[in-house]
C-alpha cells in the first residue's frame, strides 16, 4: 500500500473560548489518488479537519504527518502546503488580490517562479477551468460562481498533489457545477471533499466518512 500523503493521528483541536473540542482524537489518512468525501452537520468539525490537515490550526494533541514524517517545523509546513492545496468555503477569504491574474499567480510566485512563469501558469490554469476571459477582471466584480472557480484556480496553480475542498459547489449554477464535478472527477489529484451536496460527493469520491461532534465515523 502506498504511504499516506497526509495523515492525522489521534488529533484533537480546541478553539479558545469554546467548551468542547472541534476535533476529538481523529485518525485520518489521505493516500495518493484517494478521493474522500466528508459529510456531517454544521459544527461537526468538517472545516476544522481540513484546517488541521494543512496545519493551519495547532493541534491540542496528536500528530500531523506528511509523507510519514511528523510536521513540526515551518519548512515542513511549507512543503506540506505545497503539495496539499486548500480551497476555502468563503471565496472572499481566498481571493485577496485586486485582479484575478494577480491572485492566481500569487502561489507560483511564492514558489520562487519568475513573473513570466507565474503569469503563464496562472493563464494556463484559468484556461483549463474555462475562465481565461476573467484574467484581467477585478476580483470584487466577479459573480459568486466565478469567484468559486477562480478560488479553485488559485489552489490548482500551485500544482498540488492533493486538494482539500470546503463546499466547492456553493453559489454555482447547474452548468458550472457540472463543469466542476467533471473536472474533479477526471482529475488525478487526491481529494478531500467537504460538502452538503450528496450527489456531488457520491459522484466524485471513492470513500465517504461522516463527522459528528468532532469525531470521524465511517459512513454507513
Amino acid at each position: 500500500m502506498t504511504s499516506p500523503l497526509v495523515a492525522l493521528e489521534g488529533a484533537s483541536l480546541v478553539y479558545p473560548g469554546q467548551s468542547g473540542p472541534a476535533l476529538c482524537e481523529v485518525d485520518f489518512t489521505l493516500r495518493p489518488g484517494e478521493k474522500i468525501g466528508v459529510t456531517g452537520d454544521n459544527g461537526s468539525g468538517k472545516t476544522s479537519l481540513l484546517l488541521a490537515l494543512v496545519g493551519l490550526r495547532p493541534l491540542a494533541s496528536g500528530r500531523l504527518l506528511h509523507r510519514g514524517d511528523e510536521v513540526r517545523k515551518s519548512t515542513q509546513y511549507h512543503d506540506l502546503r505545497r503539495e496539499v492545496g486548500l480551497v476555502f468555503q468563503n471565496c472572499d477569504d481566498q481571493l485577496f488580490s485586486p485582479t484575478v491574474i494577480e491572485d492566481v499567480a500569487f502561489g507560483p510566485l511564492n514558489l520562487g517562479l519568475s513573473s513570466g512563469e507565474a503569469l503563464a501558469i496562472a493563464s494556463e490554469t484559468l484556461e483549463a477551468l474555462n475562465m481565461g476571459h476573467l484574467e484581467n477582471r477585478l476580483t470584487h466584480t466577479l459573480s459568486g460562481g466565478q469567484k468559486r472557480i477562480v478560488s479553485l484556480a488559485t489552489a490548482l496553480a500551485m500544482k498540488p498533489k492533493a486538494l482539500l475542498l470546503d463546499e466547492p459547489t456553493n453559489d454555482l449554477d447547474r452548468t458550472t457545477r457540472a463543469m466542476v464535478q467533471d473536472f474533479l472527477h477526471r482529475s488525478d489529484l487526491s481529494l478531500v471533499l467537504v460538502s452538503h451536496d450528496h450527489d456531488l460527493t457520491k459522484a466524485i469520491t471513492t470513500r465517504i466518512i461522516h463527522m459528528e461532534a468532532g469525531r470521524v465515523w465511517p459512513d454507513s
Binding site: H78, R81, F106, L109
Partner: peptide, 24 residues
C-alpha cells in the same frame, strides 16, 4: 476574523512573509 482567514489563505499558497511582485 477575515484577516485571520486571509492570512491562512496566503499561508496555503506558500506565503512566507515576503511578497513577490508580479512584474509586467
Amino acid at each position: 476574523d477575515r484577516g485571520q482567514r486571509i492570512h491562512d489563505a496566503m499561508l496555503m499558497r506558500g506565503f512566507a512573509g515576503c511578497f513577490h511582485p508580479l512584474q509586467r
